[in-house]
């Protein structure tokens, strides 16, 4: 039987950051985000220990740990792993059970995930190799525009008339932005144009999978209010606000899977 005090952990090791969520009895005890270390196991270790510390726990207290993210298989203390696609679905569904579509925009990837009324994966699509439609795209564009990534969203919200950025290739987009700057176009308008271009690219995947309300947005780009706004316009619906940090959804999903797997394991042992 599962004891209410049992501790599970979910660790998400991505290409730019690592996240850990510690849970017990269906509640989040703590969560942490760090920049990646040179090695995935180091990232996993550091972020998990940090999260454990905030919960006043140590590695030995973990009863089950599931890892996810691109470094998911190199984590020695994890009992198992699962793809981040399933995790994002489960995590967002747990945070807001009305969610049926999850748009996850990470640093290198963009995924659109459909889940059923139990939070299980129904279907998904992932972007092609190119950077358009990922966090990387915004990073490059912010640099071209000469602002910090976090300033890009608020800047775009000041715009009254977004400029048209038409290209679908991030290299040509960069060139377009430079041209617009040379033409003396207002920077908020260009920033808004960038957000729109980004949202349009993401919509290709949304259309491919098919949207079903409610729609949630996860990953770092969810913190950019202008992209959220553009996406809502294209979606013609509101994006629901998750009550958790959108960046930890993957780790949360992994922690939820850890709970499920621990339950199963204990059931087996009892039999």
């Amino acid at each position: 039987m599962m004891d209410n005090s049992m501790i599970v952990a979910g660790v998400d090791v991505g290409s730019l950051s690592g996240e850990a969520v510690i849970m017990s009895n269906g509640n989040i005890l703590s969560q942490e985000i760090i920049r990646v270390r040179p090695l995935p196991e180091q990232t996993a270790n550091d972020v998990t220990i940090k999260a454990l510390e905030s919960a006043k726990l140590s590695l030995d207290d973990i009863d089950y740990c599931v890892s996810t993210g691109y470094g998911r298989e190199m984590i020695p203390f994890a009992n198992g792993s699962i793809s981040e696609i399933s995790c994002h679905g489960k995590g967002a569904f747990w945070a807001t059970p009305s969610v049926r579509t999850v748009i996850d925009i990470g640093g290198q990837d963009c995924k659109v995930i459909r889940v059923d009324d139990k939070g299980n994966l129904l279907n998904f699509m992932m972007n092609d190799k190119c950077a358009a439609g990922t966090g990387r795209f915004l990073e490059v564009m912010a640099k071209t525009l000469g602002v910090e990534l976090r300033e890009l969203g608020p800047l775009a919200l000041e715009s009254k008339a977004p400029t048209g950025i038409t290209s679908i290739c991030s290299i040509i987009c960069q060139f377009e932005v430079m041209m617009l700057l040379n033409e003396g176009k207002d920077r908020p308008d260009i920033a808004a144009g960038i957000s729109k271009a980004m949202a349009r690219r993401v919509m290709r995947l949304v259309k491919g999978v098919g949207k079903k309300s409610d729609v949630a947005l996860t990953g770092g780009v969810a913190k950019n209010p202008a992209v959220v706004k553009s996406l809502q316009e294209f979606l013609e619906m509101e994006i629901v606000k998750l009550d958790i940090d959108p960046q930890i959804v993957g780790a949360l999903g992994a922690a939820l899977v850890a709970t499920e797997r621990l339950k199963k394991k204990l059931q087996k042992e009892t039999i």
């Binding site: 691109y70 699962i82 793809s83 981040e84 696609i85 399933s86 990837d109 299980n120 994966l121 129904l122 279907n123 998904f124 992932m126 190799k129």
Partner: peptide, 16 residues
């Protein structure tokens, strides 16, 4: 160059 992404997709497909 893309093996990691393929693995994720194949794995998610199997999970599905």
């Amino acid at each position: 160059p893309d093996v990691g992404r393929f693995q994720t997709r194949v794995e998610a497909f199997i999970e599905r």
